[in-house]
């Protein structure tokens, strides 16, 4: 485990997009050991583009992404997962025909295979519901359970950094509470989390720092407690 405060993720001047369309116009972002960093922004601000470039689904146009000191910009997802950067995508993306257990097992396809049995038990203790439904096809789970499964699958790869992409989307208010509490617990166990959310108040409550992405660039950043009091942020995201 890296010592507290050591840089885990350093993004510098990241430009990315789709085809000829540039969505991210020079994003700088940093995450240090032990942190939960919230990435906020409205729909279309470029949050998903950023995630997909961090996890190697797309290749950035320019800029640098350093993960644990290693340059990973443009590297394939296989290498990025191997390095310990695991992205739990928006929309869950679980394997619908596979059982819950098989989904979790595949979470350790590239990384964490040696400790698979132990991690299966750990995930089942974090999400007892997944343990109960181990033999059920993932496609038959409820939305909230699928979200648990997606996170559980991510944890199976023993991430050094977990990107959670809109984990509260489509969950009932009670489950949203649970989700944020979970992120807090995982972080207390030493996991770094990049939390990508539209749920501003709750994200800022558990994050150490936050970035606000607007039109493909970082518009605001700073300690979460300060941002929570920022008048511009309150106006544009909270309607206050």
């Amino acid at each position: 485990m890296a010592e507290p405060g050591a840089p885990i993720l350093e993004v510098r001047g990241l430009r990315a997009g789709y085809g000829a369309v540039e969505v991210l116009r020079g994003v700088d972002l940093e995450l240090r050991a032990g942190e939960v960093v919230a990435l906020l922004g409205s729909n279309g601000a470029g949050k998903s583009t950023l995630n997909n470039n961090l996890s190697g689904i797309y290749r950035p146009f320019a800029g640098s992404i350093r993960f644990l000191g290693e340059e990973i910009a443009g590297a394939p997802p296989t290498r990025i997962v191997e390095a310990g950067l695991v992205h739990v995508p928006e929309g869950r993306r679980v394997f619908p025909d596979l059982t819950v257990r098989e989904n979790l097992e595949l979470g350790s396809y590239r990384r964490g295979r040696a400790a698979r049995a132990r991690n299966l038990e750990r995930v089942a203790s974090i999400f007892p519901r997944l343990g109960e439904r181990a033999r059920q096809a993932a496609g038959t789970l409820s939305g909230g359970e699928q979200q648990m499964l997606a996170i559980g699958r991510g944890l199976m790869g023993e991430p050094r950094l977990l990107i959670l992409d809109e984990p509260s989307l489509g969950l009932s208010p009670l489950l949203v509470e649970e989700m944020f509490a979970l992120v807090g617990r995982l972080n207390a166990d030493g996991l770094c989390v990049l939390l990508v959310e539209q749920n501003v108040v709750q994200s800022l409550a558990i994050a150490h720092r936050a970035y606000v992405l607007e039109h493909g660039a970082i518009a605001l950043s700073g300690p979460a407690a300060e941002l929570a009091r920022d008048p511009a942020l309150r106006r544009s995201y909270l309607g206050l």
Binding site: S55, I57, E82, V86, P96
Partner: peptide, 12 residues
């Protein structure tokens, strides 16, 4: 069924 999810767990 789920190529994107597969990529994200490091499946080539």
């Amino acid at each position: 069924k789920e190529r994107q999810g597969a990529r994200l767990v490091g499946i080539d």
